[in-house]
Design a binder for these strands. Sequence first.
DNA 1: TCAGGGTTTGACGCAAACGTCAGGCCATGA
DNA 2: TCATGGCCTGACGTTTGCGTCAAACCCTGA
Lengths: 132, 132
Amino acid sequence: MNRPELDSRDLYAIADLAKEFGISTRAIRFYEAKGLLTPGRVGGTRIFRRRDRARLILILRGKRLGFSLRDISDYLSLYDADRTQHAQVALLVEKVDQRLKLLQEQWTDLETTIAELREIRKLASERMGAAG
Amino acid sequence: MNRPELDSRDLYAIADLAKEFGISTRAIRFYEAKGLLTPGRVGGTRIFRRRDRARLILILRGKRLGFSLRDISDYLSLYDADRTQHAQVALLVEKVDQRLKLLQEQWTDLETTIAELREIRKLASERMGAAG
DNA sequence: TCAGGGTTTGACGCAAACGTCAGGCCATGA
DNA sequence: TCATGGCCTGACGTTTGCGTCAAACCCTGA
């Protein structure tokens, strides 16, 4: 483990991050190709810093939230530029609101579905008599 | 409008349903190709009945819920066969539970994101002074 | 010196859910 | 009669988010 620069824990190899977050190196390279990450280079080899790691965390959360990489890319741009880009922030807030609304719809849809399944299950067990 | 069979409102042309639900005829044909719908035929032309319309409603709800057409197909099978397929129902209940859990996670993630956006928005407007 | 392990860049593959022609059939109305 | 409009079946195209080689480079340890 004689890699002083890497041991400062401000620098990560691609496999380090892949392992830490349980994703593939391919995925990480893909995020870079899409402009979501911009790691440094030593020769050809990618070197990730804390900033990159932080961005990766945001990317993964965005994915859990169901946003596309395009959307996440927009979101990440907020963390760069001055944060004074009012219009950008407004746009993002809007997108999150949309997503929130969609989740609310899903929630009520799900309640309906659950009720239906309960009904089906009930009918099923009735037909099966005491064997249910 | 001299189409007595169609005016009984138990029969629909493909375009009727497409228009009613705001989807393309292509999508409807696709659902049929995937076995989710089984409309009748008069010559080559598809004829949809109330049953097909009801299934289409379930399909669209399933999609809103984020399920794949494969999943929805399984779900629909419950509405056919005897409803006595205990195992099937259990399986579906399980899938819905999974989806429910996922939505709950998304919900809390989204709250975090919203809080962050509010913070950014606040910082932005502060920097812009009273002009916000 | 050479195998092994980690890295790189292409480039093709893939599954889902349709979009988008293309070409053809059929019925209707001016 | 012929143009128009709706429906049909292929069949290829598209987008998203990677997976999966392939071929090559570099460093390290036995």
